[in-house]
């Protein structure tokens, strides 16, 4: 097996957890302030976006871990059928093989490739979703910070 999908679920989960913990701590510190006060409003808005990004990253970490596990499981199945997995593609290794081996490979390859395609598509959707959420939280935070810095 070569070309494991890139990404580190632990680092994404760590970031997600840290963001959510910090958002919760900040919300707790600001809780006694009136919600309509300048600091209370600002703290609430920042906490919501930080927590949003944290939740998205935790979800992505889980999806990424599942994708890596699926990839590994399918690579083991491929190896048992005499095939190799490169990235998300099933390939036939080089070398001289017998006719029964060729037949076994050709029978196993379509199912394996279909399963790899599904895993790759799921991971693609997860990546698109986390990107969207991070970009939206970024834009919202930029707007919040700009408004807060304007003289009132």
């Amino acid at each position: 097996m070569t070309g494991m999908p890139a990404g580190d679920p632990a680092s994404c989960s760590h970031m997600g957890g840290t963001l959510r913990r910090r958002a919760a701590g900040l919300a707790q510190a600001a809780y006694p302030l009136p919600a309509d006060s300048a600091t209370g409003r600002l703290a609430g808005a920042v906490c919501a976006q930080v927590d949003r990004a944290g939740r998205a990253l935790q979800g992505y970490a889980q999806d990424l871990a599942e994708a890596l596990a699926t990839h590994e499981r399918l690579a083991v199945r491929a190896a048992a059928a005499g095939l190799d997995v490169q990235g998300w593609r099933v390939v036939e290794p080089y070398g001289i093989v017998t006719v029964p081996t060729i037949q076994a490979r050709r029978e196993a390859a379509p199912d394996l490739q279909a399963a790899l395609d599904r895993g790759n598509a799921r991971l693609g959707r997860a990546r698109a979703a986390v990107t969207r959420e991070l970009q939206a939280a970024h834009a919202a935070l930029a707007q919040i910070a700009t408004r807060a810095e304007l003289p009132t």
């Binding site: 999908p5 890139a6 580190d8 994404c12 760590h14 970031m15 992505y60 990546r127 970009q135």
Partner: peptide, 12 residues
């Protein structure tokens, strides 16, 4: 974090 995708990484 290491997201494993250029676009997601830039967003993070």
């Amino acid at each position: 974090p290491i997201l494993g995708d250029d676009s997601a990484q830039r967003a993070a």
